[in-house]
Amino acid sequence: MSELNRQLNKRPAALLLAASFLLFTLLSGCSKQPQIVSHQGPTMGTSFTVKWVSSDADRDARLPAQIDQLLVAVNNSMSTYQKDSELSRINQMPAGVSVALSEGLTQVLKKALEISESSAGAFDVTVGPLVNLWGFGPDGRVIHAPDEQEITLLQQRVGSHYIELSGNRLNRQRNVYIDLSAIAKGYGVDKVAELLENAGITAYLVEIGGELRARGVKPDNSHWKIAIEAPVSGERQVQRIIEVKDVGIATSGDYRNYFEENGIRFSHTIDPATGMPIRHKLASVTVLASDCASADALATAMMVLGPEKAEAYAEDQGVEALMIIKADEGFIEKMTPGFKDYLVE
């Protein structure tokens, strides 16, 4: 056999070896080790961060745009800062007009009304006019406390019992202004979590403006760790660290958003019953719940209730919570038995 024929006879084996190597390389690339993928950005007047565990590069490349699109849709539905949002258009309608709500707005409003009823009105999505009056809403900041007559006048427009929700149809029996800022971020977290789960993600940590939801564990099988901030103005300190899995987490406090006049601090958390910012000693509440929207609303309700009533409410409703209460020197903690199981000692 000539030298040329011998070389030609070797080529099929060489080609087969090269093809086998290429196939092995491709398969190895598709089965990379799971790692944490992250995406973040602005939303709802704050920021968001989404982390998930994945080994699918193609899916990871698609998810950021889908997350962004979803959060824009939530904001377009529930923002009070956006004048053309679904909620803003409803607030501009006259009282007595029945209107069909989107599925998401229906779900959020239904949950809000349930928590309003269970908390005897401490959580109230119609408190918006008073929030605006005190300078904590879309109308902008104030430097002076409003007078008593202004507060009394606006209190006539406050009360969840003026909202009638039947199926997906809403009827405001008075000209109430609905503000979902104490539950919408939690709902946004839940929707992103749902998006991830529908994409096959089984481990993630979703956060919007400090409200979170966690599922599964990290690639090293450790739990997601969350730092609970100490309610100290002007600095960042960690009060507690918790390990979480399959739970929604939300914190409400009076130590970041406030203004002072004549030595008096006015919190952004408004008590619907008085029309005034809260004045009790409860500094912050962290709530754990099966979903983040519930945790978000429950934390606000408990902040309005104050330490004694909030503790009784948590026990009655089976809410797992950590309360940080102002003392003569520093703070004291009160937590439900179930919350202790999440602490990192």
Rank of each mutant, 00 (worst) to 15 (best):
S20V: 01
M303E: 03
F259A: 05
A122H: 04
T336R: 06
Q35M: 12
L8A: 13
T336V: 07
Y342W: 14
I115S: 02
N9L: 15
Q7V: 13
V344W: 03
I249A: 07
A193C: 13
R256I: 00
F48A: 02
E207R: 08
Q149W: 10
A314L: 04
I178G: 03
K83P: 02
I201V: 14
V176Y: 03
P231K: 11
R141F: 14
I249L: 13
H39V: 10
I36C: 05
E150N: 07
V131L: 06
I208R: 01
E229L: 15
W224K: 11
I324P: 02
R62P: 00
V344S: 12
R6S: 10
L212K: 10
G135T: 10
A312V: 03
A321R: 07
A182S: 15
L105Y: 03
H161S: 13
A73G: 10
T269G: 05
V238W: 05
V37I: 12
S181I: 07
Y81S: 14
I324D: 06
L22R: 14
G167W: 09
P138D: 11
E197R: 12
G128A: 12
M323H: 04
V74R: 06
R89Q: 11
G338E: 14
H268V: 05
S38P: 08
D341Q: 15
S222T: 14
Y187C: 02
A13L: 14
P272M: 09
L22C: 12
A289Y: 06
V50F: 01
G338M: 13
I270K: 09
G128L: 12
A13N: 09
G186E: 03
V72H: 07
E329K: 14
V97I: 14
E197S: 11
F259P: 05
S2C: 06
H280G: 03
N132L: 12
A73L: 09
E235C: 12
V287W: 04
M78G: 08
S233F: 10
A120I: 02
V244H: 12
A310T: 04
E235W: 14
K10H: 07
A112H: 05
L22P: 01
